[in-house]
Design a protein around this nucleic acid. Structure first.
Length: 134
RNA sequence: CGAGUCGGUCGGGCGGCCGCGUCGGGAACCGGGUUCCGAUCCGGGGCCCGUCGAGGAAAGUCCGGACUCCACAGGGCAGGGUGGUUGCCAACGGCAACCCGGGGCGACCCGCGGGACAGUGCCACAGAGAACAGACCGCCUCCGAUCCCCGGAUCGGCGGUGAGGGUGAAACGGUGGUGUAAGAGACCACCAGCACCCCGGGUGACCGGGGUGGCUCGGUAAACCCCACCCGGAGCAAGGUCGAGAGGCCGCACACGCGUGCGGCUGCGCAGGCGUUCGAGGGCUGCCCGCCCGAGCCUGCGGGUGGACCGCUGGAGCCUGCCGGCGACGGCAGGCCGAGAUGGAUGGUCGCCGAACGGUGCACCGUGAGGUGCCCGGGAACAGGAUCCGGCUUACAGACCGGCUCGUCCG
């Protein structure tokens, strides 16, 4: 568990971050990063993060292991995010068998892509290979 | 020593660095209240120290309870569950012991184990015939024809026959005899089985013995059904406390007015339909009868809040000893406290040790299959709480301990 002030806890927060944040997909995970603070949220709060690990990743043991690994990886990188940012990391099925080093590489790469200002005229939005239902 | 069987315990260990949640304590800080100020009081987040922090199945959610809310006026009909006996248990569809049937040399294992003379249904394929069945071959008497060695053979027909062949999971008891044209429980003896009666044993399921009877009367109830017993509904998103809120009304302040702010009360607005002792709508497990409550209820559109806390973990609890009991279990005494998260903690990472397994490696033992030790590689099963217990079922790499049985060898 992250420190309480660094956690996303409510469903609307997850929904708005996924809907409005910049998305960057890699083979094992997808990152949604929302840097635009919506009205009402003070700008002095620390960056916050949440995780989405669906049943497609594996059974409860696998899902919890993936969540814990991602949590530790994100905790190390949380200070690099601007204040007030909201981050949602969504695990994809290959994450269930990946090592922490592999997950960390994907996370770093995706975070760099999400923080880079998008000036490519919206063409060639890098979609993750698989983003099926569920 | 080998083979087997039953039961129990455990289910990776150690360390470095970084990190999380609960509870308790501590020093300071911030905010509020009070005050002239401070102390005291209330609240808050971070820091430091200590404490505890997943499983034998936490799983499947299949049973049973505790707990919470609703109901408690009954009767009938439906519906669901259980099914040898006696016990244990809070309860159970669970557990123990025993009985019966089957398997095993044995320890032991397996069995949704009431009723098929209350009724209804079904019994594939094969087979001539499958439920008060059935003449395909065969057997037998009689009649007719043909042939010849005059008594038989062959063919055909009216009949008899369920003993033999063949089919099948199953063919209407088995063996021996009497009997007959050939045969048949047609009759007889014994055996098996069925029904009833008597005696003895057992709390009981049932067991042992004896007698009588008619001669044999299939299976299936996880088919309907019958019998006996049991069963209110929903579930911790149960349920409760506090707060917030749109709209409405009132008061106060500002304002000419529209309106804005604050406080109090109520807890949304609009449209349509039904209804107020001629009763809408509820409740009593489903339906019917009956009974009770009863002034609101239903539909559509629009809007608001959608937060915190309690429930929440000390319990049919765990360990040890003694006593009772074949046992499940019960009683007594002493000791112990072992998770309470809520986008959900109990971890991440690195190093060492390490079982299974693999090796064309080395040494030793053995005639041999092979075994033992060392070395190298290899790296740990199934799986994670979400109100809590008792069970069941399913998944599972391996390690250890004990009881018992059979076989072999030695004494």
């Amino acid at each position: 568990m992250l420190p309480a002030r660094a956690r996303l806890t409510r469903r609307p927060e997850f929904a708005s971050t996924i809907r409005r944040g910049r998305r960057a997909g890699r083979s094992r995970l997808v990152v949604h990063l929302d840097l635009t603070r919506p009205g009402g949220v003070p700008e002095h709060v620390s960056p916050r993060a949440g995780f989405v690990v669906s049943k497609a990743v594996g059974n409860a043991v696998v899902r919890h292991r993936v969540t814990r690994r991602l949590r530790h990886l994100v905790a190390d990188r949380l200070e690099t995010l601007p204040p007030g940012a909201a981050l949602v990391v969504r695990a994809l099925p290959p994450a269930g068998t990946a090592s922490s080093a592999e997950l960390g590489a994907d996370l770093d790469s995706a975070l760099r892509a999400a923080r880079r200002p998008r000036n490519r005229n919206g063409t060639r939005r890098s979609e993750p290979a698989q983003d099926g239902p569920r």
